[in-house]
Design a binder for these strands. Structure first.
Lengths: 224, 224
DNA sequence: ATTTTCAGTGAACGACTGTACACTCAATCT
DNA sequence: AGATTGAGTGTACAGTCGTTCACTGAAAAT
């Protein structure tokens, strides 16, 4: 067995196991293996944390011998960087989606929370990875995520400044508000990840109410 | 060298290094070594996470040979359980302190935030451990902390029910409010841990303002 | 048709892990 | 004074880990 069943990633995911194995070009095969390695790594990192990654297990799960790993990544660290970038891109995509979606502020809170939950559900491993490494990680990975999160919080603060009751707020207060919202939503993400998917509705309802409560206070804030 | 300089835990922490090494009873020595092992483990876990603990490094840092570890703990898992219990006890102590401290609600928010920061600063390693394992941990440790945190949130909800504007709130809404407060304070703890100690004042000021904003919304909440 | 390229292979390395066992020797008990 | 206990020691084992190296063989380039 040198070609068949490779990159099957534990399961019957591969089509055409005996018949013609698809006329793949060499680059296509390489890219496919690279993705298999990344997928395996992301799954493992979302379960046991980045520090608990094992090159050998990643390779095994990708259907490849350990040393083949180095044909795609110079070292484990490079894999880590790629993983962080990929997960952050997913997160940014979601934020952008929530920002541009509704237009009318009729029920912006409900729409945003819904966007959040849908994105978390369709990228669970990415979010597990981000949350895990944000708090549990070591050194560079944690800091990178922290910086990026601060950046996103800053963008949120700018967005908030365009709302009716917030136009007169100082940037410092806007930042505080954005911080509060982000930490509440981060806790919501954690709840979603830990809950069995059935109880999404309650979690989202609670998240909505938290945001509503926060914005109830806004008109009565005496800016410093 | 069989006795001198043991349990010094890297540093000039030991008194009487050459002269009479204190008339310690056997149980006292045992307890001292046990503590040295726990301290070393906590420090390492707060830096590299519980999963990154190394029995050999713990023993080395405690000034003891690796196998001596088993005179104090049956396995690494037992050490982990002890660490969780100890850290949770520290956390509960703080919560209780913040609850009983002020009496007059003159500036309860400021007092509570101050209590929080002081306790975090004097138990940094415990808090690092808790935050790390809450999010980054695996299996039993993470779940234990999660359950305990939910319990503390529930207690906070009960406490909140006794305040003026909150007496008519449903338990569900109180729970939501407590959740929001806890997640905001958890984010504050994280900020404190990551910041260099000089910038505590700003972090605490921001934390205060977040709580004030939340409570500004309370009078206008229409309970569901 | 021949040469070149290179993803994937398999053995081997040195360093690390948790744990088991037989040992020493001073504090404690009888 | 003598026997017992038990914290701490040193060696050893089987298992991980990331990484290196020379290799094979089919696809791509000539």
């Amino acid at each position: 067995m040198t070609r068949a069943d490779v990159n099957g990633v534990t399961g019957p995911a591969d089509v055409c196991s005996t018949a013609m194995t698809a006329p793949e070009t060499r680059n296509e095969r390489k890219e496919r293996t690279r993705r298999a390695l990344l997928d395996a790594a992301l799954r493992q990192a979302s379960e046991r944390g980045f520090a608990g990654l094992s090159l050998r297990e990643i390779a095994k799960q990708a259907g490849v011998v350990p040393t083949a790993f180095y044909r795609h990544f110079e070292s484990m660290d490079e894999l880590g960087v790629t993983l962080v970038e990929e997960s952050m891109r997913a997160l940014r995509t979601m934020i952008r989606g929530a920002r541009n979606a509704p237009g009318g502020s009729a029920d912006l809170i409900r729409a945003s929370v819904r966007t959040l939950s849908e994105h978390v559900r369709s990228h669970e491993e990415h979010y597990w990875f981000l949350v895990r490494e944000r708090y549990g990680g070591t050194g560079a990975v944690r800091q990178t995520i922290g910086v990026e999160l601060k950046l996103l919080t800053g963008e949120l603060a700018v967005d908030l400044a365009r709302f009716d009751g917030l136009r007169t707020w100082s940037t410092e207060d806007l930042r505080m508000l954005a911080d509060l919202i982000v930490s509440a939503m981060l806790a919501t993400v954690m709840e979603l990840l830990e809950a069995r998917p059935g109880s999404d509705a309650e979690i989202l309802a609670a998240a909505e109410r938290k945001l509503r409560l926060i914005f109830l206070g806004v008109p009565h804030w005496r800016s410093t």
